[in-house]
């Protein structure tokens, strides 16, 4: 019997997810023994044409990381969808948009202007911007993919079968997910692979240190405090999103005394990750007057970056609404 065919592809992401695959270390060799990799631009010399030549549905699974930001991403993931039995959103960016998804708070124009003109490190006196088509010589026109109006998570562009969470997914989660896929005993479509069905608190070693009532008086930002690594970080005033985030990462950040920022995403019952995070976190701010509440919550300078760090494009509103021209 043929070995299962696997494709890996990289959309708008930092590359960490590609690293994560390599981070499987010696286990990567087991993987390579078990499967045929038919497409992996970052590591192997296959071209799009090679994929196009494959019969539809012939790839067992495509692992796609990163969100959909460019027309090229859109083109390739649609192609892979056609060629694959399973499409797997690998990592937070692919699943919910990830950090690059925070760009949805700005219009294309704002982003372009900043990146090509206003960013402090940019020196561009002629205000040159990349064009979709650039004539180099008489007969040569270079084409660039289009920068889409918004970044979208993979499942808003193609049908996604499974999700593997994390920024990036830990080797452990990746391996568990692969094991599940190889076992042939596939979970229901839409499942998150390799992680827990409970929140991080479930596996957090500091959960037992919480007092009976988890209420906080002062909200602190991580750099403002040397956190006690043996005590629940939330109770120390840090915005820890562990309670609202899927567990399975092994509480790695917590073990390094850093609060959870939510890269494993929401649990199944949650409608909007950021909305739920707001709801839970604000609830425990132990003040009753409007002024005091405002003051305590005012410590959160960048609520979107805190509560929607990995999930803005997958939120109910996807990004800033007023980008629509009026």
């Amino acid at each position: 019997m043929d070995k299962p065919k696997i494709a890996l592809y990289w959309c708008a992401s930092c590359g960490g997810c590609e690293e994560a695959v390599v981070d499987l270390a010696e286990k990567i060799l087991d993987v390579v023994n078990l499967v045929d990799i038919v497409f992996w631009p970052v590591a192997m010399d296959y071209k799009i044409e090679d994929v196009e030549k494959l019969p539809d549905g012939s790839i067992t699974a495509s692992f796609i990381n990163g969100g959909i930001r460019l027309s090229e991403h859109e083109h390739v993931v649609k192609l892979l969808r056609r060629k694959s039995k399973l499409v797997i959103a690998y990592g937070a960016c692919s699943a919910w948009g990830g950090v690059p998804g925070l760009a949805n708070l700005y219009s294309r124009e704002e982003i372009m202007r900043y990146v090509y003109h206003e960013a402090p490190t940019v020196e561009n006196p002629e205000k040159i911007r990349p064009e979709l088509k650039t004539k180099v010589e008489e007969k040569i026109t270079l084409e660039l993919p289009e920068f889409l109006p918004r970044l979208l998570p993979l499942d808003l562009v193609v049908d996604v079968d499974y999700y593997i969470p994390g920024c990036p997914p830990t080797p452990d989660v990746t391996w568990k997910a692969i094991e599940t896929l190889l076992s042939g005993n596939l979970p229901p479509k839409g499942s998150v692979l390799g992680a827990l069905d409970k929140s991080l608190c479930y596996e957090c070693p500091l959960n037992d240190t919480k007092p009976e009532k988890v209420l906080i008086k002062e909200v602190k930002r991580p750099h403002e405090v040397i956190a006690d690594p043996s005590k629940c970080l939330l109770t120390q005033g840090l915005v820890c999103l562990g309670p609202v985030t899927r567990g399975g990462c092994g509480a790695l950040c917590i073990k390094a005394a850093m609060p959870c920022t939510g890269c494993f995403g929401p649990l199944d019952e949650v409608i909007d990750y950021g909305g739920k995070a707001i709801s839970y976190f604000a609830s425990i701010v132990d003040y009753t007057s409007e002024e005091e509440i405002e003051k305590a919550l005012g410590k959160i300078l960048d609520p979107m970056g805190v509560f929607y760090r990995y999930s803005l494009p997958a939120s109910r509103l996807r990004g800033k609404i007023m980008l629509v021209e009026r």
Partner: peptide, 16 residues
């Protein structure tokens, strides 16, 4: 009140 105080900040960012 606590939740809506925080939500208002977020809605603003969403452009509402």
């Amino acid at each position: 009140l606590r939740r809506m105080t925080l939500l208002k900040k977020v809605l603003k960012e969403f452009g509402i």
